[in-house]
Simulated scan of single mutants.
Amino acid sequence: MAQRYPGAGPIRKKRRTKRKLAGAAVVATIFALLLLGDAPLYLISDHYAGVGASQRITLGDGSRIELNSRTAVALRFSGAERRILLLEGEAWFDVAPDASRPFVVEAAGGTVTALGTAFDASLDRNAAQVVVGQQSVAIASGGRSVLVEEGQQSAYATGAAARAPTEADLDRVSAWRRGQLMFENETLGEVVDALGRYRRGLVYFVNPALRARRVTGVFRIDDPLAALRQIEISLGLHAVYLTKYMIIIKEYNWIFFRSRPPLCTGDHVFQSGGAFRHSVETGMRQWRAEWFRASAEWGQRRDRGGDRDHRSGGAGLTRPRRHFRRAARRRGADLPDSARRHVQSAQRRGR
């Protein structure tokens, strides 16, 4: 059969090929940035801890440095001072005393001078935070100097003066040295960003308002994907794993639980006030058990010949799901408005 427009077929085929090649090039570029994005830091630093790794360093003067994941430092030692550039990430410094050679950490355009001390310094974009574990440090930034004592913290941005010292939670700040991350009433966006230090990839929120949800908990840093799954379950969210490097987070359309606790930890979910503790694993086992009970109930009804039961939730749904929703309504679970309207419409059709 002759073509209606001679020559159109090959042209369209070439265009489709070009689009596919362009899409493949974009995907390849994204993965290259994810996998090779830290290469410049590795080249300009003296010590570098990769993604998901940590590193302990003992300097020639006896001082010790512990690098967190995705952290890079450069050494600038001289006869007059011991200067370290914090290029990226977070590090714990345990300084050997030497009055003739001050120990100085440079980050975000400011300096932190150790006065015979141990402290934590972190760099996030153009801002630095310092938490003192022992004795004190002097922070110089924006033309001003601030003295931070033991158990206190301060922060500053590039070109700005350091904030006044405040009390710090040393246990939470140093949790990464024990292989944990601790959060207390932090936003979901901040938690996801913190977990991103220990894994490669991107996390995209379909609804940006989800980033404002609050999370309190303790998670292990050796498996950040497991931490994301626990948060997903406890907050009633749904994560779509395109790959382990690209994750999309959205809300569930159906929630069958009677109540959903607002706060979570790596091992447990807490109700407000922390008085009641409910295991996530136990809750999921109960959810699966109810689903299987609904499936078994439908199988029994089918064997008895009672296959059509319009009261069970609507002809447009699969049988196990209809029985599952009926069980949810029986125990007083709230369904979304759209689901309730769908069920009521199906019931009217059944009558």
Rank of each mutant, 00 (worst) to 15 (best):
F276Y: 14
A162T: 01
S338P: 02
S69I: 02
I231Q: 02
R325V: 13
K250P: 04
G60T: 13
G332I: 04
I233G: 09
R304N: 14
E90P: 06
G266S: 02
A25P: 07
E150S: 08
M182S: 13
F276M: 13
T117R: 00
E184A: 09
A168Y: 01
L188A: 03
I233S: 12
R349K: 14
L41W: 09
R4H: 13
I247L: 02
Q271R: 11
Y5E: 12
R302A: 15
G23S: 14
G9S: 12
M182Q: 15
T282Y: 07
H342Y: 10
L335K: 03
G236T: 04
Q153I: 09
A127C: 06
G37Q: 01
A114W: 03
A8Q: 14
L225P: 10
G236P: 06
I11M: 10
I11E: 10
L181R: 07
G89N: 00
I255T: 08
I65C: 08
A32V: 11
D171V: 12
R288W: 11
R349V: 11
L237R: 07
A22I: 11
S345R: 15
R197N: 05
A24S: 09
S78W: 04
E167T: 13
F31P: 05
D120E: 11
T243E: 07
R70H: 09
I30Q: 03
G142R: 01
T265V: 03
W291Q: 07
V112Q: 00
K244L: 10
T166E: 07
L147Q: 14
R76E: 10
P224M: 01
S234I: 07
V191G: 06
L85F: 10
P40E: 00
V73M: 02
R285A: 14
I57T: 05
G316R: 13
